[in-house]
Amino acid sequence: MKFIAVTACPTGIAHTYMAAESLEKTAKELGHEIKVETQGAMGIENELRPADIKGADALILAADIAIENAERFEGIPRIEVPVQLALKDPKSIFAKVPNRG
């Protein structure tokens, strides 16, 4: 499957990036494609472009705060989880059934 993801945590120093790394690593293990945008202390990095969004099967939102530019993802099926789940049990995230966006 083709995933896109956004990670964001309260301070944007550690968990945003740890979660991103964890999602990328796990997707690879499970044979999925993924592109993860981080919204941390450095602002938006690895930004999801319209082309990325259009081609995605599902969006993973691993965020403890409201993310920026959320309107980009309207209509995309989504899996919303706390950031910590991406560290604790990333595989379970990919097993979830996405909600209609």
């Binding site: 120093i13 550690a14 945003t16 990036y17 740890m18 991103a20 981080t38 202390a41 450095m42």
Partner: peptide, 12 residues
Amino acid sequence: MKIFSKLARRIM
């Protein structure tokens, strides 16, 4: 700042 995100990713 990149060092922080790099470190956070490495820790995984």
